[in-house]
């Protein structure tokens, strides 16, 4: 039984002697290999973005999306295994509808995050199921608190964030996120920042071409889930791609960052 977990990684019902649950860690690994996913809560809304990697050239643009509408006021971005993410989205939609049919009002994003976290957690408790290989970013508009961003991870934890990034380019992007001023950041400028962060986190020589997929729930979209207007995405992306190449240091840290183990301390977390 040679291998990473030496027999302790076969199910989520077994702890390793060091107190780790390997299956859950493997699920987290699946997320880290995904295209970069970013969520930012701005003053006038919340922006979700995905670096949608396009290995297959025959795919039509806008197919295989990674950002989904859950309700009129909530959207989810998926990092990790797509089908697992879509399953979570399906669950989120039925939770949202169920809440509506009981209380006749929109589900608060906080409650949706809580319920999805509980749901994900259940899949780390039994030998006959595996954890979800995805982290989901829940962007929503709360009736009383305005825009908000929640993240649910494969282990079933859920946090409220100002900004979050995961996937291949996460380390470079998290560093860049830490430098933003969230008290003043608007959605439009966040879109431009995201385009820059994703561009700079990439290794042009090695990485597959990508589609920049973005959605927001903002004042501009009447507090409803909407795709960021194509023109804005295209112009933001063009702007950063035409910029003179960053200094060597910037580029090399970005490529060195890839595949590193995440340090959760770089997340910009909020009391929830």
């Amino acid at each position: 039984m040679a291998g990473v977990g030496s027999g302790y990684d076969l199910t989520t019902t077994t702890f390793s002697p060091e107190g780790r649950v390997y299956q859950v860690e493997y699920a987290t690994k699946a997320v880290e290999q995904s295209g970069t996913v970013i969520g930012i809560r701005c003053v006038d809304g919340v922006v979700l973005a995905v670096e949608n990697l396009r290995g297959v050239k025959l795919l039509r643009p806008d197919s295989l999306r990674r950002i989904f509408a859950v309700d009129r006021h909530i959207g989810i971005a998926v990092a990790g295994i797509g089908p697992d993410g879509r399953h979570m989205v399906g669950r989120a939609r039925s939770e949202a509808q169920n809440y509506r049919s009981v209380y006749a009002e929109e589900i608060p994003p906080s409650l949706l995050a809580e319920r999805l976290a509980s749901y994900a957690h259940v899949y780390s408790l039994y030998w006959h199921v595996r954890p979800f290989g995805c982290t989901i970013l829940i962007g929503g508009w709360d009736a009383s608190q305005g825009p908000c961003l929640y993240v649910v991870e494969p282990d079933g934890s859920g946090y409220k964030y100002r900004a979050y990034a995961n996937g291949k380019g996460r380390t470079a992007v998290r560093t860049a996120l830490n430098k933003l001023n969230f008290e003043q950041l608007t959605c439009t400028s966040a879109v431009q920042e995201i385009a820059r962060m994703i561009h700079q986190s990439r290794d042009i020589a090695k990485d597959k071409p990508y589609e920049l997929e973005m959605a927001w729930i903002s004042e501009a979209s009447d507090h409803k889930f909407a795709r960021v207007p194509g023109a804005l995405v295209v112009s933001s992306r063009q702007a950063v791609e035409e910029e003179p190449q960053q200094m060597e240091t910037g580029g090399s840290t970005a490529s060195a960052d890839r595949g590193e183990t995440p340090s959760t301390s770089t997340h910009i977390m909020e009391e929830s």
């Binding site: 859950v70 309700d71 009129r72 889930f225 795709r227």
Partner: peptide, 15 residues
Amino acid sequence: FRITDNIFRQEFCQE
């Protein structure tokens, strides 16, 4: 009315 609202909400999510 609720049924029709749900239909159109699902339609919205379909995109």
